[in-house]
């Protein structure tokens, strides 16, 4: 009664066995959609879109760099929201989603940094510059690594998840402060503030592949988090009856494709 303001399906989904089946059903479709969107986006970006009149073909890194950068921030936000739910309501599923989001977010942050570096070398002539945006992204990577490291430093995984969730929330406050302080620092030192996107707005023939790639990375994230959460729930609930039934249903797989 006290929780009647929460829709029923959230309660249903919050139960690990229900979520396990739900995630198992949705994951292949989400991944298929992500692959399809990725194929369309990359075809549009790598083949159909014309070369940039200033950067030539080097700008084509944008189709993975910018969606990865967006994902690195979006996943952090998602992780923080899940972490807040985990801290306030102690929902096991929220803890799992917050903690399993961190490696995906770190992966996208790493991709952003590496592709940005590969883009920067032909454009600026250097692999790395202490530009405000790059520095903020590097700090974001350290935030992710801190969350992952703290989570794994605990014996008790649920306690680790709660501590790391709090760290993620501290990071939410910290990230804008880092961003603005780095900008201030950059103007102070007359650093190289290179604007990769130029002043002109992006052409539609380049914009639509970018947006489709952003959609593909979002779909991929949802597919990946469902798979990771499934695995995590299995190991967290390994003593429970539903896991035992599930294991007994499936034949022992010694060799064969990982599922």
């Amino acid at each position: 009664m006290s929780r009647s303001y929460i829709p029923h399906w959230i309660h249903w989904l919050g139960s690990p066995p229900n979520f396990y089946r739900f995630a198992g059903a949705w994951r292949p479709w989400l991944m298929a959609a992500a692959l399809a969107a990725g194929a369309i986006g990359l075809y549009g970006g790598l083949v159909l879109a014309p070369p940039d009149y200033q950067q030539g073909d080097a700008y084509r890194i944008i189709f993975i760099h910018v969606p990865s950068a967006w994902m690195s921030l979006a996943i952090y936000a998602g992780m923080a929201v899940a972490g807040l739910i985990a801290l306030v309501w102690r929902v096991k599923l929220a803890e799992v989603i917050a903690m399993e989001s961190a490696p995906i977010g770190a992966a996208f942050t790493l991709v952003t940094l590496v592709t940005g570096s590969l883009w920067g070398k032909p454009m600026w002539g250097t692999w790395w510059t202490w530009d405000a945006r790059l520095t903020s992204e590097l700090v974001l990577l350290f935030l992710y690594l801190g969350v992952i490291g703290l989570y794994h430093a605990f014996e008790d995984r649920r306690r680790g998840a709660r501590a790391a969730s709090l760290l993620a929330l501290v990071g939410v406050v910290n990230l804008p402060i880092v961003h603005y302080s780095v900008q201030w620092w950059n103007t102070l030192h007359q650093g190289s503030t290179v604007d990769l996107f130029g002043r002109s707005s992006i052409a539609p023939s380049m914009l639509w592949p970018l947006l489709v790639m952003a959609l593909a990375t979002h779909l991929y994230y949802f597919a990946s988090i469902l798979g990771r959460a499934r695995t995590d729930l299995l190991s967290l609930e390994s003593g429970k009856q539903w896991v035992r039934e599930l294991v007994e249903e499936q034949p022992a797989q010694r060799q064969g494709a990982p599922t």
Binding site: V139, F142, L150, A153, A163, V170
Partner: peptide
């Protein structure tokens, strides 16, 4: 409450 910290603390402090 963690088993070990040390370098982990440095990693967490850096962004702050």
């Amino acid at each position: 409450g963690a088993r070990r910290s040390g370098i982990l603390l440095a990693l967490m402090l850096l962004p702050l």
